[in-house]
């Protein structure tokens, strides 16, 4: 297996609380880029990025289109845009229609990142009340990446993690409070 080169995370209902127990634990020298999709309504920009920038040791922001993906940076998908990864490891954004009623969509990020990073990708589907992320996690898993799912028993909203586990039976189910350590171990 290739050493991981990036982490992708998807979360929906309950996302802010869950991510608050995960992202701030990552140390300032965490070596991988972390790309995050949270289902948020269209509208104000940079809300989540500024919220987490204040809590995290890593740099947090919403990327511009074609921005290079740098290690040790947390990138939040901008509201009302899909966020994708190109094979040259830059971000591209899109305003194509919603996928699974969502823009940004977790599936869209995970599928494009799986194309770009292959087996060098770690993906985690967290709390949520819909089925977004399940197909993306399957694409990631089939490309040889490491598929993680928040343990539905610990998730505020277990529907999304359950759907992901049903789609990807080979995914690891990890309690939220153990997830940061798992991401650290995987980064090596």
């Amino acid at each position: 297996m290739t050493r991981p080169r990036a982490v992708v995370i998807g979360a929906s209902a309950g996302a802010v609380q869950a991510l608050s127990r995960l992202l701030p634990i990552l140390p300032g020298d965490y070596p991988l880029p972390v790309l995050v999709v949270v289902h948020v309504p269209p509208g104000r920009r940079n809300v989540l990025a500024s919220l987490f920038a204040a809590k995290c040791n890593l740099e947090v922001r919403e990327p511009d289109d074609k921005e290079p993906i740098a290690p040790g940076t947390i990138l939040f998908a901008p509201p009302d845009y899909h966020m994708l990864v190109e094979t040259d490891r830059t971000v591209s954004l899109s305003v194509e229609g919603p996928v699974q009623f969502s823009r940004p969509s977790i599936d869209v990020l995970f599928e494009s990142a799986a194309d770009a990073y292959g087996s060098g990708l770690v993906g985690a589907v967290l709390t949520g009340a819909n089925h977004d992320g399940a197909e993306g996690l399957r694409a990631l898993f089939e490309a040889g990446g490491t598929a993680l799912v928040e343990d539905p028993a610990s998730a505020a909203y277990p529907v999304m993690p359950r759907a992901a586990l049903a789609f990807v039976p080979g995914a690891e189910s990890v309690p939220l409070d153990a997830l940061a350590k798992r991401l650290l171990d995987l980064a090596g």
């Binding site: 994708l84 990864v85 190109e86 094979t87 591209s92 899109s94 599928e111 494009s112 194309d115």
Partner: peptide, 9 residues
């Protein structure tokens, strides 16, 4: 065109 979204479409 940028490949990732083009491929998807």
């Amino acid at each position: 065109y940028a490949q990732a979204s083009l491929k998807r479409r």
